[in-house]
Design a protein around this nucleic acid. Structure first.
Length: 275
DNA sequence: ATGGTTGGTCGCCAA
């Protein structure tokens, strides 16, 4: 049954977050601390780099979260972390129909409090000209076909995650350096533009049109303190849901250097509040 | 063009 036939009524308020963890086990103390700090009703995570049999379900349960994981050995991996007792998460599905690389765990979806949600970890693509870049475009094309077949952008709908695409030049720390390069090509940006044309709104852009609102900073070269980053972690919502988005935050502090909780991910958590 | 850093896993590949 397509998701748009789901009859669950929209139930607000909810706080929804997305975060590329770069390993859920290496990041676990920081994940637990961030859950207690932000108290999201649903946290969508990417790059868990964990098979389900090694997923830290019990540690998450101790801080009140129930995980639905779509894992894989060594690479990729996505999951939905639901705050216990705070909402309904139904119809959870791993992957998507038509995926040209189904062995890579990059998409998990479900219906949360009446919101159709897709959590995606888009193929990186390595560099323009590499076969992996062509696979990225083929993967995006297949995801686009599935989204438009499976979901209804006139209903409450959200796609979030690590897009590995900068929507436009404001989302790039050095436009000249990145011109035409991976994450910044017209062919990649056409995917995001196509979702706008379909009826989705970039929730961060509802609140600010500033340049430099980054969500990812390279581990190398001290890029975070100098704010040499990219905005590639996005939350795109249908208009009916976007109209209920009352706050948006990038937890840039979380990306700062090591604490007693260990090293940070190279991505910051991104959080949206709906009322 | 290369390098720099991190993680999974244990020699590299991926990001």
């Amino acid at each position: 049954m397509p998701y748009f036939q789901s009859s669950t009524a929209l139930a607000l308020p909810v706080k929804i977050a997305t975060w590329n963890l770069n390993s859920i086990r290496a990041r676990l103390p920081r994940v637990l601390a961030a859950l207690e700090r932000h108290e999201p009703d649903l946290l969508c995570v990417q790059e868990t780099k964990s098979m389900n049999d090694k997923f830290p379900y019990e540690e998450l349960a101790e801080v009140g979260y129930v995980a639905s994981a779509h894992g894989q050995k060594t690479y990729n991996g996505v999951a939905l972390l639901l705050r216990s007792g705070e909402g309904q998460l139904e119809n959870v599905r791993n992957g998507f129909e038509g995926n040209p690389i189904p062995e890579q765990a990059r998409v998990i979806s479900g219906v949360f409090n009446g919101i159709q949600i897709v959590n995606a970890y888009v193929v990186n693509g390595k560099e323009v000209g590499d076969p992996k870049f062509e696979m990225k475009l083929a993967w995006l094309d297949a995801l686009d076909v599935w989204l438009k077949k499976e979901f209804d952008p006139t209903k409450p709908f959200l796609i979030c995650g690590d897009f590995n695409i900068t929507p436009d030049d404001r989302d790039v720390w050095d436009v000249e350096k990145w011109q035409g390069r991976i994450f910044c090509t017209d062919r990649e940006r056409a995917f995001v533009q196509g979702l706008h044309d379909w009826g989705l709104q970039d929730l961060q852009r509802k609140f600010s049109d500033e340049a430099g609102l980054f969500t990812w900073w390279d581990y190398r070269g001290g890029s975070h303190p100098r704010n040499l980053g990219l905005r590639i972690d996005l939350m795109l919502a249908s208009k009916t849901l976007a109209s209920n988005c009352v706050a948006f935050e990038v937890d840039r502090e979380e990306r700062r250097k090591s604490t007693g909780e260990g090293a940070p991910s190279d991505h910051a958590p991104v959080i949206a509040q709906f009322s």
